[in-house]
């Protein structure tokens, strides 16, 4: 499995609606993770007790996973994985919001879809735009190859660790919820990852908006050596963080649409127009093909 990550954990998301995270869903997820024995054994004990045990044990679980992952990446970092050359890799694509999603979709447009398959898209629960854009891309691919979208792509939402303007103190709690939810999604998508049958490679692309300093997500992945490859879009940023790889700018000439670069990846006119009705704030986003 490959993770293409972009800034899920940053301080400047542009969306504005209310966070929808509810504790119930998380507790439900946790009890499912623990296969419910806790609930059955102690009928009399309170739910908050169960959930605090669950939170604690999953926190320990997450920390140990991170440690193992850390040692693995430090050991393997930058060495190519020659063994996996031929078969497709299932790919988890993490979409930030706004301009960041556009950057990620630009990258996806040039990646060979037959190699990076199936694709799982994750966006923040309060971000309605990103998954719709990904859905458009997948629809056009499916139409092109005469396949069904459900065979090659899945779309999921995740709790956000911090909303724009949310205070740093309350974001400790929301970040924990988001982490547990993220873990749950990983289990759901690909049990091998958690069971340790196969390890994932993590690729992180820093946003074009970061010229002089890495974002918080980028910095964490860099300092903890969590990412196998960390790409930056400005040379001065690479000079400051030598282990990063400078790859030039990802922002294309026309939004979401890649032309000429790779004949497999042409989606003419698909993004002709897209208006979202449900929220007046989001009506601002319109994507027009600039042929």
């Amino acid at each position: 499995m490959v993770l293409l990550g972009k800034r899920m954990f940053d301080t400047d998301f542009e969306t504005s609606s209310e966070p929808k995270s509810s504790c119930d869903d998380v507790c439900l997820a946790l009890t499912e993770i623990l296969k419910l024995p806790l609930m059955d054994k102690c009928n009399g004990c309170s739910f908050s007790n169960v959930s605090s045990i669950a939170v604690f044990s999953s926190a320990v679980f997450v920390v140990s996973l991170i440690l193992v992952r850390l040692l693995y990446v430090i050991y393997h970092s930058r060495s190519a994985l020659r063994k996996r050359a031929s078969k497709p890799v299932s790919t988890l694509i993490i979409l930030g919001s706004g301009g960041h999603t556009a950057e990620m979709l630009n990258l996806l447009a040039v990646l060979q879809k037959d190699r990076f398959n199936p694709r799982f898209y994750i966006a923040a629960a309060t971000d309605n735009m990103s998954l719709q854009k990904a859905q458009l891309l997948e629809d056009s691919l499916a139409a092109q190859n005469e396949t069904r979208v459900t065979d090659t792509a899945q779309f999921m939402k995740i709790y956000r660790s911090r909303e724009v303007g949310q205070s740093y103190i309350t974001s400790i709690w929301t970040t924990l919820i988001a982490m547990v939810h993220a873990l749950w999604l990983m289990i759901k998508i690909r049990p091998e990852v958690v069971l340790g049958i196969r390890w994932s490679s993590i690729f992180y692309v820093e946003s074009i908006a970061r010229v002089r300093r890495l974002s918080l997500s980028g910095l964490l992945l860099y300092k903890l050596r969590m990412a196998d490859q960390l790409f930056v879009q400005w040379p001065q940023l690479q000079r400051q963080y030598p282990r990063a790889t400078y790859v030039g700018r990802l922002i294309e000439a026309s939004d979401l649409v890649i032309k000429k670069k790779n004949k497999r990846c042409e989606f003419p006119g698909i993004y002709a127009y897209m208006v979202l009705q449900e929220d007046p704030h989001r009506k601002y986003h319109s994507y027009t093909e600039l042929n």
Partner: peptide, 16 residues
């Protein structure tokens, strides 16, 4: 305009 192919190239190389 920018170009996303260098990133794709790196990822492809890394995965073999």
């Amino acid at each position: 305009p920018g170009d996303a192919t260098p990133v794709a190239k790196h990822i492809n190389n890394f995965l073999g």
